[in-house]
Each structure stands twice: as structure tokens, then as C-alpha cells.
Write a protein that binds this DNA or RNA. Structure first.
Lengths: 343, 343
DNA sequence: GGCATGAATGTGACCGGTCACACAAGGCGC
DNA sequence: GCGCCTTGTGTGACCGGTCACATTCATGCC
């Protein structure tokens, strides 16, 4: 037992080696499961490891071997439900593979700031996962030096990350398509769209899925209302739409926006779903408990995070590459907030 | 310029040294800002660093010096608003101090699992911040070996972490006290309480603040309803309370519970705040947009995260210890969900 | 002029692992 | 009995930094 009071440094493989009466290399072989170690020796070493409470120093391992068993996740926000869930999924998979997970928050989309953040992440060693649902993330993905192992989490393969980098994606286009079709099938003449900030200059996947559904149904295409990420933005957009009596169905870029829109409609005295139907995006945990409960499209963010890690893991270990670009299939969840239009 | 196509390893201080015509030690001195380097030499070295694109290898630094400039945050959940905000605050402060941030999720409160997670975090090197608002977190904090630098984020100093470890806290007791007093001052005979899972076997700070306010007002003390963290738990608890016509005011352990309670009251046909008043805890972003908007107590989670990091930073760098146990002061936010009781 | 002093720089060991290679002992074929 | 391959183990260098100490040279003081 540790009798001396002062903090001693943790045992190294050389300490274990002396305790077991072998060379440090043999200890290294044992902890790496190398086959050519005599059973008796192996047991002695294991006993010594156990007795001294030896744990392999991750830093030294990383330095000596070059492999660091670490992932850094670059994300614009940890508070948003979707992002947090992806992170949770990554962490879960990483834990199972005994990888360490680091995070870097992209506070601004400013190029210098993004580059700095990417550099910091690169300094941490190991692989990178970039959540590229927004301008900051897209910028970060583009700023990652070519030689770094990275996986992008993107909203659509229509605008894949530069280079032939692996990515995972949610089929946002399909999801928006489904939600829009649902609203149209209830009899609405058209569906208005409150958009989250676009990740690129071009049209987002959600927007284009919505557009396609309208086009197929021959419905007029109103101008999408550009908004922010949070309920405040949804509220502002909702107030605007509420003034137009022709608006009977609104699709929102995410559930937080939908929440703001619901509240705005309430403030404007328009009933949901009696006068106006609302649908969201993500199926955040609170959406099932709002009044009215929110029709939305469920996306498996946690699973997405797990795939992202699995993909990166494959790249890092050069093991058999898994299915190249895993996709998570969206699922429409119909609740109280959508119904037929008023007569 | 890098003419060869194959990936070369990044330049080390020895590469810089040769390029600048000095020894590696001099390079080390320059990057560490050591005073006794001739101005001319320093400039030559800096030029070489710049030209080669040298970046100091964090792994080697950690191994050689023992200091790792890294924090690992142990938390039960990254999805919950409060937890995510604390994490965001920590990351923000860490970034400013150029520390790396790692995360470990405590998926179960099972002792073996928690210990394993703590060990993993310890292996990462650097300091630890444990969010101990729940049994898993409390267990983790207790399982951290004494020699490891750690800061706990706790709900109350009444049950401080074992050992004389630094901690930061939200004054949950005061917050619950304020919210309860607010409801009583509106004229309610008493206030019912829907509790989040307790972090310890003993009474939580929120519970005791609520209790104290009741006692001071001479109001009867109903049995608290034990619930979970999410809206589903709140919904179940709400349905139970809705059956009792004597219930006119409900305080909830967090805003998610409150959301479930609001919905349950709606399902039971009881109006808010007409028949029943509801108050939450945390001021999550959606609370201001619910219908009715939610009266709650705002806690500065981001600031709390920043203080936690600052405290740990002080410990790690042995710099002048900051105020030992920073507290974040709660702020009552009165919205639509609370009002006078029915006559 | 001799010598202590300090500024500027270099040398070797070290952190805790891995990797490439050397080496001894035992089993097998011829 | 010799060589050869396999099994089991040890030695030295290395990863990219830091640290403690040595060295050189110019300066100041008596």
C-alpha cells in the first residue's frame, strides 16, 4: 500500500517491469496482447500491473505511436437539441471504442475565428467530426487541412464537403418533402416555409424538399421566410405570416421555430390547427407536450452521431471502410398541430 | 513550399532550430517567451517558425512538462438545457485560456460504470469538472481520486463534495424559496412541488427552499411528487395533481417538468393560470414562448460554467485562488403561468 | 590584470510509452 | 552434429517537447 503521504507519480511500465522481474518491453507486449509471451510470464506481469494499479499513460501512447484514440467535435452550439443529440451519439460510440471526445465551439462564422478553432482542434491530435449544418460548420469543414482525418455531418449530399471526404447526413430533403406532402394532403392550398439560416449560399436541402412537394402538387410557391434558429425568430416570422389570412399551413425549419410560430399565431388570435396548421422539424423532446402537440419530422440525431464516429473510426484504424455515407431516414410524426384547412 | 506530394510529419522544434541556425533549446526559449534570448536571434527563430508553419505539439508538451492544458467535463446528459449551457460556459472560458475541453457522459449511475468513466477522464490528463446535479454526477465526484484536480458543480453547499474540494453552485435553495414565495404572495393557500430526481439520498436544495417558504408562511406542506427530468415525468405528475381540486399552485423542479405539467392540466381541462398556477425552474429558451408563457427562476448556467473553469484553472496553475466558491444568483421571472387562485 | 557576474546559448537526460532489431534457447530436419 | 526456424525476451533509439546544468563571452569591479 501507499504509505508515504506525498503524491507519487503513477507507476510506469518500467515500474511494473521491475516488480515482475522482466524488461519493460515484455510489459509492453503484455498490455498490447502480443502473442509471443509465455503464459507464466504474462501472468506475473498482469499480477504486477494489478498490484501497482498501473494504467497506460494515454499521452505517452499518443506521442510514441502517433495514434491518439481521440476525436474532436466541432460544433456551433451545444445547447440546440439536434446538435446536443449528435454529440451525445458520438460520445456514446466513442466511449464504446474507448476513444476520448473533445469539443470545440464555433462561436462565430468569421473566417479567422473558424480557422483558429480548426487549428486548435487539429492540435488536439486524433480525428475530427464537424457538424456542418450552419455557415460556421461549413466554413470549418472547408478549413480542415487535407491531411487530417475528418468526417462531416451535413444536411445534404447535394453540396458535399470539398475533397472526397466522408460524411454522414440526414435526408433533410426527404424529410421536408414528407412534411409538406402531409400538409398538402390535408387539403391546404399551399404551405408556407419558415427557414433556418442556410448553411450555404445556395438553397438548403429542407427548402428544396419543400419546393419539390409544392411543385409536384401544382401548388403556388410562396417566398420562404428567412429566420434564425430559436423560438424568438419563429415568433417574429409567425407574426408576419399571421397577418396574411391566406396562410393556412406553415412548415418550420425546426421545432424551436415552430414553437415561436405557435405562440405568434396564438398572440394573433389564430387557432391551431383550426385556422392554421403548423409542422416542425427534429422532434425535440418538448414537442410532444406543447399545446397543441406538434406535428414534426423525427430525425435520428443520436444514431447520426454514432455513424459519424463509426465512419471516422474506420478511417483512423484503416479498417474495412463501412458503408461510405450513412444516412438517417426521417420519420413523419403527426400530432395535433396539423389538420384540414378551414372551409 | 512543400513540393513533395506525400504527407510529411509536421516540423518539430529541431527542424526550426536547423532552419534558424540555433539549437533546439533556443527555439524552446523563444516559444516560451524566455527573456534571455538576443533580439536578433529571437527574430530569426520566429521567422523560421513562421516559414515552416511550426505549431507546438500539445502531446509532447503534456508528456514532457506534466501540464496538459486540458479539462474533462463529466456530465450525465448533454441534451438537457441546463447541462448543455454549463458545458458551453466551460468551453467558452477554456477557449479563452487555450485549454482543450473533453467530455465524458455518465450514462448510468451504476457505481462500476461511474468509476470507469472517472478513470477514463483521469487518463485524459488535466483537470476535471463534474456536474453533480444528479446521482450519477454525485457518484462521479465522490469517485475522483484525491490527487486529481477537480471542481464540482453542485446544487447546494449544504452537502459539499467530500474532501475540501472546490465547487461552484447555483443557489437552488434561494431560487426555490423565491418561486414559492411568489406563488404564496399571489394568495395561494399552499404550493405543491414536483421534484426532479434527488442528487443525494437526502433532501435536495430545491425541496428545502420550497419547504422553508411554506413554513415561514404557515402554509401546509403537501408531499412533494417525485418525478423524472423530462416532460413525460411532468405530465404523469401533473395528471395526478390535476385530480385534486384543492391544488391551485404547482412548483416544478425544472422547465421541462413544468411543460409536462402544463400539458397535463390542459388534458384535465384545468386552466392555467385561471384555476392553477405553475412555475418552473431554469428559464429554458422555450419557456418564454409556451402558451401560457412560463413563470420560472432564471439561473445563469453559462456563467456557472465559466466560474467552474476559472476555479479549476486557478487550481491547475496554482495562481492566486479566486473567490473560493462562486455562486450564481437566481432571478425570478414572472410570466403568464402564475396568477391569483380562483375565488 | 584577475576574477566574479550575468547574459546568451548549447548539451544531455528525461517524460512514458513504442518500434526495430538483436539475441538466447529449444525443436526439427537431414 | 550442424544449421535453421520459431518462440520468448531484452537493448537501444525514438516520438517532440522540457528541465537542469554546462559553457562561452562580454562586462564591471577592486
Amino acid at each position: 500500500m501507499n504509505v508515504t503521504g506525498h503524491t507519487r507519480r503513477p507507476p510506469s511500465i518500467r515500474d511494473v517491469a521491475t516488480a515482475a522481474g522482466v524488461s519493460y518491453q515484455t510489459v509492453s507486449r503484455v498490455i498490447n496482447g502480443h502473442p509471443s509471451v509465455k503464459q507464466a510470464t504474462r501472468e506475473r506481469v498482469l499480477a504486477a500491473i494489478d498490484e501497482l494499479g498501473f494504467r497506460r499513460n494515454a499521452t505517452a501512447l499518443a506521442l510514441a505511436s502517433g495514434r491518439s484514440r481521440a476525436v474532436t467535435v466541432l460544433t456551433a452550439n451545444t445547447t440546440h437539441y439536434g446538435y446536443a443529440s449528435i454529440l451525445q451519439g458520438i460520445e456514446e460510440a466513442a466511449r464504446a471504442a474507448s476513444y476520448a471526445v473533445g469539443i470545440g465551439v464555433l462561436e462565430s462564422a468569421d473566417e479567422a475565428a473558424v480557422t483558429a478553432e480548426v487549428r486548435r482542434a487539429a492540435d488536439a491530435g486524433g480525428g475530427l467530426i464537424v457538424i456542418a449544418y450552419d455557415p460556421a460548420g461549413v466554413g470549418a469543414l472547408a478549413a480542415v487541412p487535407a491531411e487530417l482525418p475528418v468526417v462531416g455531418v451535413v444536411e445534404t449530399p447535394a453540396s458535399p464537403p470539398p475533397g472526397d471526404r466522408p460524411w454522414v447526413w440526414t435526408d433533410d430533403r426527404e424529410a421536408a418533402y414528407q412534411a409538406t406532402r402531409h400538409l398538402l394532403s390535408l387539403g391546404h392550398a399551399t404551405v408556407h416555409y419558415v427557414a433556418i439560416p442556410s448553411s450555404t449560399r445556395r438553397t438548403s436541402a429542407r427548402t428544396s424538399g419543400w419546393r419539390q412537394a409544392l411543385k409536384e402538387a401544382g401548388a403556388p410557391e410562396p417566398r420562404p421566410v428567412q429566420s434564425s434558429w430559436g423560438p424568438a425568430g419563429g415568433h417574429a416570422a409567425g407574426l408576419r405570416l399571421a397577418r396574411d389570412p391566406a396562410v393556412t399551413a406553415i412548415l418550420c425549419g425546426n421545432d424551436d421555430l415552430a414553437l415561436g410560430v405557435l405562440r405568434a399565431l396564438h398572440d394573433a388570435g389564430r387557432s391551431v390547427p383550426g385556422e392554421v396548421s403548423v409542422a416542425g422539424f427534429d422532434d425535440a423532446p418538448h414537442s410532444a407536450y406543447l399545446t397543441p402537440t406538434l406535428t414534426t419530422v423525427r430525425l435520428d440525431f443520436t444514431g447520426l452521431g454514432r455513424s459519424a464516429f463509426a465512419l471516422l473510426h474506420g478511417v483512423l484504424e484503416q479498417s474495412a471502410q463501412i458503408a461510405p455515407h450513412p444516412v438517417s431516414v426521417p420519420e413523419l410524426v403527426v400530432r395535433e398541430s396539423s389538420g384540414p384547412p378551414p372551409d
